[in-house]
Amino acid sequence: MVQWPRAHVAQKADVSEDDLLAFETGAGTLDADADLRLQKVLESGGAVFLPEDEDGGVGVRLKFTAKDVRALDRMENEGGAYGSDDV
């Protein structure tokens, strides 16, 4: 959903790529700590985890709309070359 490569997510969540693949495909589970780390990583990428409530079941959606993401991408690329701030 956040469009990050599995290797990137696995590294940031401190889980193996094989364990993450097994989790994604339903062939394996993660322990509670790894599950929480994975959620935090995905939230940092813009995923929002929705709890079950009277209006519906659990779910995941993106924090930003596609229009917002395009605007953020545009702003992130406007800075030009970077350099040291030490004067």
Rank of each mutant, 00 (worst) to 15 (best):
L30C: 02
D33G: 12
K12D: 02
P5D: 15
G56M: 05
Y82F: 09
D33C: 08
K67A: 08
R61Q: 14
R37T: 07
R37Q: 10
E24R: 02
E17F: 06
L50I: 14
D73R: 05
V58C: 11
T29Q: 13
D14K: 04
L21E: 10
D55K: 13
A66S: 08
A34L: 01
S16A: 04
A10R: 01
E54D: 13
T25M: 07
M75I: 02
D53M: 05
L38W: 07
V41M: 09
L50Y: 10
P5W: 10
G45R: 04
G28C: 07
D33L: 11
D19Q: 03
V58K: 15
G79H: 06
E76Y: 00
L62Q: 12
Y82Q: 15
D85P: 12
P51G: 08
G57R: 11
R6N: 08
E54K: 14
E54W: 13
K40C: 14
D86K: 14
E78T: 00
Q3F: 11
G28K: 05
D31P: 01
G28H: 08
L21K: 15
G46W: 02
R74G: 00
R61G: 08
D18Q: 13
E78N: 02
L30D: 05
V41E: 13
G28Q: 01
V87C: 10
Q3P: 05
D33F: 08
S84G: 10
S44C: 06
V2W: 01
D14S: 05
L36K: 15
R74F: 00
A47I: 00
A34M: 04
D68H: 05
M1D: 11
Q39D: 14
G46R: 05
P51D: 12
A34Q: 13
G26V: 04
K12H: 07
F64L: 15
D73I: 01
Q39E: 15
Q3T: 02
V41P: 06
D53R: 01
E78Y: 02
V15K: 04
D55N: 14
M1V: 03
A34E: 09
S16L: 06
G56N: 02
G56F: 04
G56E: 06
A27R: 15
E76P: 01
L36V: 12
D86L: 14
D73L: 07
A27P: 13
P5C: 11
G26R: 06
V2D: 05
A66F: 07
L21T: 14
D35V: 03
F23K: 00
G83E: 15
E52V: 05
G45H: 03
T29L: 05
D53N: 12
K63A: 08
A13H: 02
W4E: 09
R61Y: 03
L36G: 15
D19R: 09
W4I: 06
V9I: 10
V87A: 13
L36E: 14
R61F: 01
D33H: 09
L21H: 12
A81R: 14
E78I: 00
S16N: 08
L21V: 10
A34R: 07
D86M: 10
G26S: 00
E52G: 12
E76W: 00
N77I: 11
V58L: 12
V9M: 01
G83L: 15
A27T: 09
S16K: 03
K67V: 03
R61I: 06
A10N: 03
V41R: 03
Q39L: 13
